[in-house]
């Protein structure tokens, strides 16, 4: 269990800044959902935290350890930050079991049992010896989640993890994912376009706009009390009115 603090992150492409003095704190074991329009810098932030891009300035810490600032840069493979991408990116030459074991230390005796445990949680045991192209996209996403969770990362980053999945399967996958993230107390940052994802899985909502986190808080507070009209518009565009979200939140609380 670790918290993550990113402060004053600046990143830009040739056509202008993407992240503009962005700061965010992820609390131990909490699931934070990052919401924002296309091009707001959501994926870039995930890539910077994972170490796949380096920010121009700013600092990132996991617990007490600085993993990236002007002087220090820890390579992605040493950060213990897991990544789940929208496209799943399973290794096509490896069987499902080997995909899940990929990030596990060879010396770990309980390597297989860890993989089998995760396969059971994500209900993919029967595909143990299949190859990625032999299973459906929903199952592939389950494998992708299991693979990222297998090495017990300190931080898990998920980029649109439920986006290309059948509606019927989405609900169960969200529940399974949330269960294991909570059981293992993994601090998570998830990017999603779907407010249902955010409401069902996240403990917090963070709104990113023009490269900055403009609002962060409990989903109820953010949805019902957006700090500006633009955020309000985003919610209204999604659903038509705020009453829908009120009922969704109440429904979730009752559950």
């Amino acid at each position: 269990m670790s918290n993550l603090i990113a402060s004053d992150i600046l990143y830009s492409y040739s056509n202008g800044p993407v992240l503009n003095s962005l700061s965010i704190e992820l609390i131990d074991g909490e699931i934070t959902c990052l919401i924002g329009e296309s091009g707001a810098g959501k994926t870039t932030l995930l890539r910077i935290i994972a170490g796949l891009e380096k920010q121009i300035s700013g600092e990132i810490r996991i617990g007490n350890q600085v993993i990236s600032n002007d002087d220090i840069f820890i390579d992605p493979h040493k950060r213990q930050v897991g990544l789940v991408v929208q496209e799943r990116a399973l290794f096509p030459h490896l069987k499902i079991i080997d995909n899940i074991c990929f990030g596990l230390d060879d010396t770990k005796i309980n390597k297989k049992s860890r993989a089998k445990y995760l396969m059971e949680i994500f209900k993919i045991e029967k595909y143990e010896n299949s190859y990625p192209h032999e299973i459906s996209s929903g199952e592939q996403q389950r494998v992708s989640l299991a693979r990222a969770l297998a090495p017990s990362p300190k931080i898990l980053l998920m980029d649109e993890p439920f986006s290309s999945i059948d509606r019927a399967l989405k609900f169960s996958l969200r529940q399974d994912t949330k269960k294991i993230l909570k059981d293992e107390e993994i601090t998570t940052l998830m990017v999603s376009h779907d407010f249902n994802d955010a409401l069902e899985v996240a403990d917090k909502l963070a709104i990113i706009d023009q490269g900055k986190i403009v609002q962060i808080g409990q989903p109820r507070d953010v949805v019902l009390n957006p700090i500006n009209n633009q955020i309000k518009k985003q919610f209204l565009c999604e659903t038509g009115d705020l009453i829908y979200w009120q009922s969704k939140i109440d429904e979730k609380n009752n559950l």
Binding site: A50, P76, E87, P92, G103, A148
Partner: peptide, 27 residues
């Protein structure tokens, strides 16, 4: 080969060299 496959391999603890031998070359 897709960028995501390389990225995922790196976040799973594999250096660039190891990613070449374990992922890029077998694919």
């Amino acid at each position: 080969q897709s960028r995501d496959i390389f990225d995922v391999s790196r976040t799973l603890g594999f250096s660039r060299t190891k990613t070449f031998f374990k992922v890029a070359l077998p694919i």
